[in-house]
Nucleic acid binder design. Structure first.
Lengths: 208, 208, 208, 208
DNA sequence: GATGAATGAGTGTTCATTCAT
DNA sequence: GATGAATGAACACTCATTCAT
């Protein structure tokens, strides 16, 4: 959480003190604001530092490079989405489960759609880093796998990416219905119907 | 001087002569090769011109700016995918129809996955241009609409983006099973099951 | 002379036109002036470009990086010193020969001692590039070798480096007597006396 | 604020306590190691402090600036070389004397050729600081002056720099014969023959 | 139409140094 | 005395784009 780069040669300081963590938070918030206001184009290290009220040197004390800020932003959100996803315990029906998942993903980035869009763009814009988002996909697969242990890789992939991909498309296209109930309903239908179909087809057969 | 894009889609010259068309093709092919080899990072106007064997000035004679090359590449592919999608006439079952659609989309960019990835990244990387991909989405919606005229916006969106988004994710993540039959099967299942569910729920209700 | 980098990945343009060569000369002259006036410290790519009256981009069209300018300056001087060294044909006595050599080396960089100092510093500052100066050393060894074929590696080295090293020290220390006759006389004495000593000792012995 | 060097040789603190001396030694050793391993490029104050196991603040308690560390390293070696040079008393022949001097200089930095190279590069790389090495040169001149009081500045310079410069060149070029007897012999010949020549020429004439 | 030399705004990043704790 | 977080001036270098030839 405090380490912003697992990569080799970690040259950046690992903040141990309160002030340092505060600084990191300041920088991330500034980054989010700039992304929200001006998109990826306005996002320069100098601008972020300035907005955060710290020197450019301080920024580089905590982030190895520009990318690292974007990744940190993404990781932060993945973490809290994951935390949200892990919360429910007593949900019963698959449909309820799917709905809960869908809602948690939609609610990521707490409403800051522009920030979300910018982060998604930034991460997609480079081949590297897409994996940053896979923890959520992996989590989505957990539940179905508990129902159907024999789920194939392709099925896991399709189930998780259908939901994530559709939501992602809505984010990128800035669809107005994004936070509406109807959209959520359809996503739930998408997940639930696919799951049912898989279950039905798996019932009578055995996968090698 | 600082703004490099005057207006969207403003090609410098509408190529009418054979030679001009050839030059454009040369440039697009060079762009594809560079994208394939080095990704978005290696994609610079000077490099493309050099690879195409034309001067940088000539490149700018046909493309308003760097983006335009990427868009042209995307448009080219959207066109041929659309042409492919329009081809079938006698397909009967919804499932067959979905399979055909899925296959056509998977086959876009004729196997050049790296090029496809780069083009997708490039187009996603900027807010503008996502629409470039919507014609395919629009087409996907045509057939379902003919079955269920009362389809809501959200349903159209979810159906089309679930397929496109999942395929897109597979492209970006360079999934090895991308061109396999199993993946296609699951995409078909995804579309067909969702469609069935929508039909079932629409059957007994009336839309305002 | 026009290629400023033999290194792999030669990305920089090889100037073929008259204007281009002129530009290169302009840049080198500007570099020399800046070095002369402010030393290595004042030597920045932007400053050089500005002084040369070209844009920074143009500078980078011809020089791969900052170092390359310094190396080009050094190479240029090594070439002309070499040309000078090759000139004499009818010199007879070893002493005359030594004097001519010493004088040619002292006269390198045509009096611009500060430029010379900066170039020497720059080249010494990195392990790589010291060899850039060896052609002159190699040439110095030619004549002695024609007199005494059995010269050892150490003798060749000592003879050439004694002269070059002493002159280099005078440059780096900015000795005021650098261009004086007395200094030249002593260098000649150094070379001639060493050579005589070697000849004397070689006369009666046989090297393995 | 922009000028970081107030005055030459202004150590922050004259270490009087044992601990302080230890710290200084720690820093110098760290500096040597870093220079040895990564050359001048890797030599940054932060890196040195880290390697020394002290904070950057502490480093600055003992060294006015980055340069000062390099100078201290050079001075340390100059001191011990000087101590070595002063040792002999009963040497008689000029040649013996020259040999002893040459040997002492070659043995400086006790075998750490990489460190020596790096220190030499570092000190040469900046105009300032070359004088740091002159004490040795000055000492070299002492003995000849005792033989020939009328030695000119140029003669003193040539004699000392011929030896130092040749050795320096061997260090920079990492000549394999550096520690061999043959190299030493030739350096002795160089010094002795030059000295003889000067004596011979001085014998019959009178300098103004 | 074609060329390619020239442009230069813009940006990421480093690292010596300070000073509040 | 020691610490190390913060500073910020300084720079090298890129690359989309233009325009004189």
């Amino acid at each position: 959480m405090t380490i912003h780069r697992q990569a080799p040669e970690r040259k950046r300081r690992i903040p141990r003190q309160a002030r340092a963590n505060e600084t990191v938070a300041l920088i991330l918030e500034a980054a989010a604001q700039i992304l929200e206001a001006g998109g990826l184009e306005a996002f320069t290290t100098n601008t972020v530092a300035e907005r955060a009220g710290v020197s450019i040197g301080t920024l580089y004390q905590y982030f190895a490079d520009k990318q690292a800020i974007l990744f940190a932003l993404g990781r932060q959100e993945v973490q809290s989405t994951l935390a949200e996803l892990r919360r429910p315990e007593g949900h019963q029906t698959p449909e309820e489960r799917v709905r809960y998942t869908v809602r948690a993903i939609i609610n990521a980035f707490r409403g800051r759609m522009r920030v979300r869009k910018a982060v998604v763009q930034a991460i997609l814009a480079q081949g590297t880093g897409i994996e940053a988002m896979t923890p959520v996909a992996a989590f989505i697969a957990n539940y179905p796998r508990s129902l159907i242990p024999a789920l194939t890789d392709e099925q896991v992939f399709v189930l998780s990416r259908a939901l994530l991909g559709t939501i992602r498309a809505a984010v990128l296209e800035e669809q107005p219905f994004f936070r509406g109930r109807a959209f959520e309903d359809e996503l739930v239908r998408l997940g639930a119907s696919y799951l049912s179909s898989v279950i039905a087809s798996t019932a009578g057969s055995t996968k090698g």
